[in-house]
Design a protein around this nucleic acid. Structure first.
Lengths: 343, 343
DNA sequence: GCTCTGATTGTTAGCGCTATCAGCTGGGGC
DNA sequence: GCCCCAGCTGATAGCGCTAACAATCAGAGC
């Protein structure tokens, strides 16, 4: 259990290129080529080199390679609170895509979300000379931060709103909200209440806009939206207020966690879901199907977002500026928390 | 390979040490010292250097530095499915701790969990020459993988069971399960059923052991434990079976997601919680307090785990092998899903 | 037979930084 | 007045790798 006191690690210093070259009886350059451009070396030479590589357990030194090539093979991801389902899923997808393309991912989580912290995150990654950066920070401060980026490094953003000086991949929050709201109206509800996310989050804004646009287009009354902070607690607190108003029959909530709180508040007030009140969430977290009742919600495909972001970044790094898809459409998943309007 | 037509990026190549030295009128070495060992340079010289650094926007090249110092300032984290609350929280805590100590974190998420994938994750990070690695993979395959690590790189593991050749930080799963089980017995239940996690997960095993040990010590009947896969769905499926058995009055479930499924299954079977059946979960995810009813559960302090893991790794990197705390005690959080045994 | 070509391999020269040791200065001790 | 030492700064030599060009050789073409 207790580690050995004498670290006898000086027994064989790690092999370097010259060691391999010597063992294989070729020059260092040939070893380098055998590794990086195999078809520029005769097959039998390559075989000898590879044998030597394996025998010595040689591993290229990335620092040396980077020093001369200028590329590190590392991407940076700046993200806020990777504990949340959305950012965590996006990060995961980016990392998977990166791995498949022989990139590795450095993360910089932000403690707080403001312009300064974003700049710091970027600087921290830049100081490690990453080849490019994905910024996942769907907050208005990110937009500010992005406008003040020092140039010269490929950067793409996820869910970062409009008029931003970098390419953006985003989920069509507005469209998702439109679908949720239309769904509720189609069930016969006269109008739809909304509990939103924090107003300085881009995502939250898009959802409010989508919701409002449908109500206005349909000539329905537009109730005041109350803002939560994404947490179940805030949903509970705001839900209690709605639960006391008997005219409320349909609620669209900004995310699934808040919705959980809303469901509890409604239940405590004796209002049945969906018989008395229909509820629709946003995100489709894995647990949403096991809420009580199973939640009708809008699914965001975070995996797709992550993959697009990676691809976009790679294009910028390689200078192949093709336009890939940048908008990911969310999808309404109808379960049992929404139903026909009462009476 | 790369058909660079006209790489017009040479407008101002980034400043290097010599540029700063020239502008400040000193040697490169003095600039290096001013940056890395400020007290070995006269204050006014340092000031001149710093002025030049700022004027030129100089950033040290980490590859060059690493090439000569042998240290990269990067830590690696190998983790399985960083989408899950536990791993995500641990990762987050490690990253925070790393940042405060001027380290940056590289992640290698594993698609699958087996010996080979762990080895691959480690190799991927090693190929980037990280200074050390934290492995977060509470699965028996991790133990296997860890036994076959190539030596020479500081590694610590999180929740990796016993007889492992590397230092381990772990949550006392057994102790948490003991607390949960005792709590239920103290409420007058004759015995406690258990729905476990996948049996090849270290965490899941510890919880089973703790649960069983209490029942045996108290001479209670030990019902067979059924294993889920951590998901709400598996909890729902297994919960339905338990719900049909009227002798079941107390259930300890391996995590909160599964518990959500169990709660739904019980409700569908018309069994009230906690009046008919008491339920206790594990993890205390942020939503647990808003389950219906609010969930009694065992809180794991993932933040503490992450911090300890970082500290332990740093000690190994620096060779200061002090023994820090390696066991984190979870805590029972009593809410409303557990109550006195019926009749 | 001789030049020319393409395939293969080798040589040289750094990439940007820091470890190491050498050099220079000024003040204290005798 | 001279030596010694501490405090500061500089010159040199790589760290391990690859870009760029040079060298070599076999075979093709005439």
């Amino acid at each position: 259990m207790t580690p050995s006191s004498d670290e006898g690690r000086a027994r064989t210093r790690p092999a370097v290129l010259d060691d391999v070259a010597e063992l294989a009886g070729v020059s260092a350059m040939t070893v380098s080529r055998a590794l990086n451009a195999p078809d520029r070396v005769r097959p039998e030479t390559r075989a000898r080199v590879m044998a030597a590589v394996n025998k010595l357990g040689y591993r290229p030194n990335p620092a040396a390679r980077q020093l001369v090539t200028g590329r590190s093979g590392v991407l940076g991801v700046v993200s806020f609170d990777t504990t949340l389902y959305g950012p965590a899923s996006t990060l995961y997808a980016i990392e998977q895509a990166a791995r498949q393309n022989d990139y590795v991912v450095n993360i910089a989580s932000l403690g707080a979300l403001n312009r300064r912290s974003i700049g710091e995150g970027v600087e921290r990654l830049r100081a490690q000379s990453v080849d490019g950066i994905v910024i996942v920070a769907p907050h208005e401060s990110a937009a500010d931060g992005l406008r003040h980026l020092s140039p010269g490094l490929p950067v793409v953003a996820v869910d970062a709103g409009e008029d931003i000086p970098v390419p953006v991949v985003m989920v069509d929050q507005r469209g998702g909200a439109v679908r949720a709201t239309r769904h509720l109206l189609s069930l016969g509800h006269e109008t739809v209440w909304h509990l939103s996310g924090p107003p300085n989050w881009i995502d939250a804004r898009g959802r409010v806009e989508g919701w409002r646009s449908v109500l206005e287009a349909e000539g329905r009354p537009v109730p005041e939206a109350a803002a939560g902070d994404w947490s179940a607690y805030s949903g509970y607190r705001l839900g209690k207020r709605l639960a006391g108003d008997p005219s409320v029959t349909a609620v669209f909530v900004a995310n699934d966690q808040m919705t959980l709180g809303v469901l509890r508040a409604l239940r405590e007030a004796g209002r049945r879901v969906p018989e008395d009140v229909s509820v629709v969430g946003f995100d489709d977290v894995p647990e949403a199907a096991y809420f009580w009742p199973p939640l009708t919600t809008v699914r965001q495909n975070f995996g797709e977002v992550g993959r697009h972001a990676f691809r976009l970044l790679l294009d910028r790094i390689q200078g192949t500026e093709q336009e890939g898809p940048r908008i990911v459409e969310p999808e309404l998943v109808v379960r049992e928390s929404s139903g026909p309007a009462p009476h």
